[in-house]
Design a protein around this nucleic acid. Structure first.
Lengths: 218, 218
DNA sequence: ATATTTTTTTAGGCAAGTCTAAAAAATAAG
DNA sequence: CTTATTTTTTAGACTTGCCTAAAAAAATAT
């Protein structure tokens, strides 16, 4: 069994390992968890004794199989709770993160299985991120950043990279939600902004926005 | 804001104060929380500084208004989650306590309000215990222990005093659930056991059982 | 009214998880 | 290849919440 703190470290390392196949540095973990590198070193020693990470001094860490499974299960819980909050409790997609961050640590396999049933076995959370299955496997879908689409290409909005509430509220304001059809009308060279059509609305978005929206091409 | 530990102390004192109007002793709290009296003394000092209990050395503690409201809110969350687990996730009444014990500490007013909506504003949990409203007020109903009923009196089962899973599973086995109609057929003098009719079934129960079942007379 | 027992508090210590400051190792630069 | 910089680890300290053992106060019994 893992403490709250241990679970948070596992989750952080799990997320960092999705973007990199090298050992995850103490500093990277510290930044992710808003703590200090020295605290990370301490915790990593404990996790190493518990066989969930492999650690060689100065070489960064990797999750073991057990560690990966444990972390994926926490992510699974987090994302299922997010779906619950949106589907059953009328939360909006920008309100769910902090609550799910608490709920993900509740320990009860039955609770999560039944939640999965209640929600109809969802595969993605409200931000389009995939929900790991019970074994920790992720089904990743073919998706591209909006910024990589060429002029006149069209796709469906399937996810966000940044799921801060600021960004999500901005998208709401612009009428951009998961499932919306988006077409690139124009790409401006001088500032990399895009003219796009969202549903029937035309609007202009900055490079930064286009770099945070995932699209499934059609 | 209160720590997990502080919340558990508040809840323990709250429950103990329901049964007694005298100051709650260090020992009583220690027993309830399965900890040591010296630990209780430590924590009470902290709670006292946070203005949720009044404490005079050797005199036991009382909750303040704020303390009572805080504790009632935790109990409210606990009982709403129990209803959720039974109504929405197919838990049985003997399985909910430990999970609710974790869920009651989740901090999100919106979560609890919306849960209340989803569940249709329940007034009692799966064991018949009343759910405090947002202000912390309890609506208590007229109920008697089954053991106090006279021969030939009838009532509806509305609650249990002991909600351990052992006792609840025993009741399941006997077909006794909330809402069942119970009639006292016979009271045996020599061992205080009862012959009762539950629905259409006749059975005999011990004094101990009769002392743990609440009945609303009809 | 005093002695004994019980309850409560104090004193000191321990583990988890964090921090700062300093030392050690690795990496980058000249 | 040696020096400078960055990263990581170690050392020591702090807080929270708990413990045991001993002292102090309160309650009970003689």
């Amino acid at each position: 069994m893992f403490t709250l703190s241990e679970e948070n470290y596992l989750k952080a390392i799990y997320h960092l390992e999705l973007d990199s196949d090298k050992g995850i540095s103490t500093n990277a973990i510290a930044e992710q968890l808003e703590t200090k590198a020295s605290s990370v070193t301490d915790m990593i020693k404990k996790l190493s004794e518990k066989k969930v990470v492999v650690y060689k001094k100065y070489k960064g860490v990797h999750l073991t199989g057990l560690g990966k499974k444990t972390a994926a299960n926490i992510v699974r819980k987090h994302r299922l709770w997010e779906v619950f909050l949106v589907e059953k409790l009328n939360f909006s997609w920008d309100e769910v993160h902090d609550v799910a961050e608490q709920l993900e640590h509740i320990k009860s396999p039955k609770l999560i299985n039944q939640l999965d049933v209640l929600l109809g076995f969802p595969t993605h959370d409200p931000h389009g991120d995939p929900i790991p299955d019970k074994e920790g496997n992720l089904k990743t879908i073919e998706k591209s950043l909006l910024s990589t689409l060429a002029k006149n290409e069209t796709g469906i909005c399937v996810g966000v990279d940044d799921s801060s509430s600021e960004f999500l509220q901005f998208l709401d304001k612009k009428g951009i939600t998961l499932g919306k059809k988006i077409t690139v009308l124009e790409k401006e060279d001088f500032d990399d902004s895009l003219s796009i059509k969202v549903g029937e609305e035309k609007l202009s978005i900055s490079k930064k926005i286009a770099n945070n929206l995932y699209i499934k091409k059609i």
